[in-house]
Design a protein around this nucleic acid. Structure first.
Lengths: 124, 124
DNA sequence: AATATTAATGCGACTTTGTTGCAATAATAA
DNA sequence: TTATTATTGCAACAAAGTCGCATTAATATT
């Protein structure tokens, strides 16, 4: 399926690129420059995820956050480092720090999701 | 507010104690020995959380999982160690291993949520 | 043991987050 | 300029949780 360039896609990607942080659908819809339907935004975001342009983090609030992750460009599973969620400005950013762990015998790890939360420097 | 001993509470706590793992509301409702309304189960679980008897983990699927955590008994914020979610049997368990990290200046960490996922020994 | 107090329950309605089917629209290719 | 089909909007839907309110039932009181 070939991809087409559309206003919605451009706007979402622009917004996500400007912010360095992961945003919820909600925040994206509010701050985006174009009017776009909720479904459209989700579809655009999911497509970006599929294409590896954007990645998705699920926070302790159960919501999905999307970001153009700068540090982990290209990684298919970009969650092996810590993320930080600021509960004040409600965004998530990648921290450079990698996650280290060792697990007991018999466990097969397919995904790593490490999220710290609190307040970020901008909100202190 | 004083707490009362009710069938629903006993059943939930019994189930959660038998399993060593965190279960979703859904799983609890299915496996519980008593009939209980969805709202009731959630209220019971949340009350247990408030009382520090049970704790809650939110997984990458965005759902809440509840467990009587054996290792972190008494801890108010019991998430400073890794959790493991088995995507086959759909339960979460506490791994003993603690989470170590250092964060850049200016960040104030209030909560730690580290979840590995894959398949557990029982499901391999 | 009978009664009063109020925590706990069930029900239904509601919210939020996210997805999906379908017809209409609009990028791209021809 | 037209044909192709990716994308969009809309509405409906689904799942996870929460909440208000009247009813029920633990506990305390007499």
């Amino acid at each position: 399926m070939k991809r087409r360039k559309t206003p919605a896609k451009e706007a979402v990607l622009k917004l996500l690129s400007q912010r360095q942080k992961a945003m919820s659908h909600d925040a994206i819809e509010q701050e985006i420059e174009v009017d776009a339907n909720r479904a459209t935004i989700y579809r655009v975001l999911n497509q970006f995820c599929d294409d590896g342009i954007v990645h998705k983090v699920v926070a302790e609030d159960g919501k999905q956050y999307f970001a153009v992750c700068m540090d982990c460009k290209g990684e298919k599973i970009p969650n092996h480092h810590f993320h930080f969620r600021c509960t004040t400005c409600d965004t998530i950013e990648c921290l450079g720090e990698s996650v280290h762990f060792s697990i007991p015998e018999g466990y097969r790890v397919k995904d790593v999701n490490c999220l710290l939360s609190g307040t970020c420097p901008d909100c202190t």
